[in-house]
Design a protein around this nucleic acid. Sequence first.
DNA 1: ATTTATCTTGACCGTTTGGTCAGGTTAAAA
DNA 2: TTTTAACCTGACCAAACGGTCAAGATAAAT
Lengths: 213, 213
Amino acid sequence: MTASGRPANSTHKAAIRQENEAQILAAAERVFADYGFKGATTARIAEVANVPKANVHYYFATKEALYRRVIENVCSQWLEAAMTFENTANPATILRGYIEAKMDLSRSNPYGSRVWAHEIVRGAKFSSDYISTTVKDWLDGRVRIIRRWIAEGKMDDVEPYSLMYMIFATTQHYADFSSQIEIFNDNQPLSDAQFADAKENVVRIILRGVGLI
Amino acid sequence: MTASGRPANSTHKAAIRQENEAQILAAAERVFADYGFKGATTARIAEVANVPKANVHYYFATKEALYRRVIENVCSQWLEAAMTFENTANPATILRGYIEAKMDLSRSNPYGSRVWAHEIVRGAKFSSDYISTTVKDWLDGRVRIIRRWIAEGKMDDVEPYSLMYMIFATTQHYADFSSQIEIFNDNQPLSDAQFADAKENVVRIILRGVGLI
DNA sequence: ATTTATCTTGACCGTTTGGTCAGGTTAAAA
DNA sequence: TTTTAACCTGACCAAACGGTCAAGATAAAT
């Protein structure tokens, strides 16, 4: 019988699986953000996810497999922000859009950014393949675009890699070092207005810094 | 008898203590940089320091005490760089000196920077007192100086905190994310020439970005 | 020469860790 | 209704963990 209880067909079990995996992944992202790979414990992840520890291992064979899935999710979020570099507007608009997208991502998803920070600070042991292929290809493409802008006299002759590293560092700083920023801000998280102001200042300094304003 | 073997007076034991403590602290800095507080193990620190694990606990009662000592060392290094903000030269010279000092520190002592990164990413549990007193006082002082420069029309009207965060983020990025930068740089650490070039670009973009060039 | 204080370390301990598993429940398929 | 496949979990395990300790080695003080 396909028309009785709540679920129409055989998607109920699949829905349970999807929901539990999502719940565990969300918990893992938070715990990995706080402690990094080695410092995080499966017991704590289970506690945050509100499931027995054995259930975590039912859905994810090992702690490492779970960690890899979290890293994959973080990367795919990053690729979304990267897309804002693709449109054909003028350099100032493109750079502004990218910086704002990255800062918004840091604010809406601070856990992912912090997981990434832990991962790279520790030496990128699990993500070096991804960085040396997908991310490097993307970055080299953007560097070529910037070099073209420079050749066309649209902006100052700055080293594109230095510029991109500056954008990476500054935008992610607001997520990765939020605890420090919060202390400086009289123990209050940045308000929406403060964050919008910070965003505008970052965009202004960088655009003016490379001669686009 | 004070004139027999190698050591002159009763400083021999003290020298042993000092040397062993330094060796263990150096090893701890490296291991904490790689794994953070929770992820690091005293066994690994002992292995890197080339002493038995029990000896680590002879000189430092607990892992936490050892960690606090490492954090203190990192902070005192940071204060040295902070001093370059004190001289009475013009704004461009002061900012350039500070940025260069911080980037040089990141290069000469990448482990300390990464320990700090782990500590803050995790929520500054051990260093919040230090940040909310020493560091915050220092930062607020620099913010006042920058506001004065702005009021005197020496530079653009930018939010000083945003500027300082940008400097923190960018300069430390070269230490904290060095594994990522290395991958982007064809799996080679930045050469001295590349690093000098990066430093010059960071200084240029920021100084121009706030209207000091 | 003897005492005393510090340094050194292998062996050990209770706890926490990632991971397993048997036995149960639930729901889709036959 | 029965069978089957997926989901669930308390109890358990070997390994790794931070930390302890007794007993020995070394060197300063008496």
